[in-house]
């Protein structure tokens, strides 16, 4: 097993006819992902290197059996594309697009919740289950199959940690980039819950960064709901205090959103937090050996 994407993934890529969409969509296919369709309004009937293109995601579902949608549509149209995917009947929507207005995502988030569709992203690198499927822009060469589940807000930082895990001789059940936007479809908690239930995952690495309180919420969740060991890394200790406007943000989260506050919250619940990506990978590899 692994989570979110695997051998059963049948992928439809919205934006497959675009430059980025075709580059990454075809890369995912080359990795072994079952790419069944592209979607671009007005280009139905065409194909991209043998993959049929449909006008709508719903057609990709009924005609090509798609169960997973990847969104590679420009920011100002992306929320509408995600909404279309939610209505189309797919189980999972992975939105790579960066720069979607947050209030658009507010509506889309609740739409996905109501429909029971799993939404990952936006502004995320996607999901890779090594040896099974890759949906998104994660460079698969740094990750081998193995027992560590990774969940991260950041892209390159995750590759850095994955590469160090690989050098330490271990690998991953899945790597999920949840994205760093203020509103994302799946938070740390949602993914931690999936890893907890996944028999292939023995240990979880969680990579957070400053802003919001998703890491603090995750710390609470880990304490009560996660039996597997979790190692964390938080980026942004030296980030400037910022030109914080008003005080309402601090009041609602009950946290300053700083890296230190997140580290403290995690450590208070017994989660080990690495000082650098290198140390984080080393701690994970060491804990895995002692399991």
């Amino acid at each position: 097993m692994s989570i979110v994407v695997d051998e059963g993934t049948k992928l439809a890529v919205s934006g497959l006819t675009g430059r980025e969409g075709s580059f990454h969509g075809l890369r995912n296919k080359a990795y072994g992902t079952d790419l069944v369709a592209g979607v671009t309004p007005g280009k139905g009937g065409q194909d991209v290197e043998g993959t049929p293109v449909f006008d709508t995601i719903a057609e990709a579902v009924t005609e090509a059996g798609a169960n997973t949608s990847m969104i590679f549509v420009p920011a100002r149209f992306a929320a509408a594309a995600i909404d279309e995917a939610i209505d189309s009947g797919v189980e999972t929507v992975i939105a790579i697009t960066e720069g979607i207005p947050v209030l658009d995502m507010l509506n889309t988030y609740w739409k996905a919740k109501e429909a029971g569709v799993r939404l990952i992203g936006p502004n995320c690198p996607g999901v890779l289950s090594p040896g099974k499927a890759n949906v998104g822009i994660i460079p698969a060469q740094f990750f081998d199959p193995g027992p560590i589940g990774v969940v991260s807000k950041s892209g390159t930082l995750t590759y850095q940690i994955g590469n160090e895990l690989k050098q330490a001789g271990t690998g991953n059940s899945s790597i999920v980039g949840i994205g760093g936007d203020p509103i994302v479809g799946s938070d740390f908690i949602d993914i931690l819950e999936l890893y907890e239930a996944d028999p292939e995952t023995e240990l979880i690495v969680m990579v957070g960064e400053i802003g919001g309180d998703a890491e603090e919420r995750a710390a609470e969740f880990i304490a009560s709901e996660v039996s597997k060991p979790v190692v964390a890394y938080i980026a942004g200790f030296t980030a400037p205090p910022g030109k914080q406007m008003g005080h309402a943000g601090a009041i609602i989260s009950g946290s300053s959103g700083t890296a230190q506050a997140k580290k403290d919250a995690l450590e208070a619940k017994g989660v080990r937090v690495g000082e650098s990506p290198t140390e984080t990978a080393a701690i994970a590899a060491e804990m895995l050996r002692s399991l």
Binding site: S152, K153, S154, G155, T156, L157, T158, Q160, G180, V207, E209, I210, Y233, A235, G236, F237, T238, A239, P240, A259, E275, S276, P277
Partner: peptide, 27 residues
């Protein structure tokens, strides 16, 4: 780009890795 007060110029790819680079330089 965000300006800070120090003397070590930093250039990295990706926001997360860039923040992590600042941290490691500070450490």
């Amino acid at each position: 780009y965000v300006k800070l007060d120090g003397n070590v110029g930093i250039l990295a790819n990706g926001a997360g890795l860039c923040m992590s680079t600042l941290d490691v330089v500070a450490q």
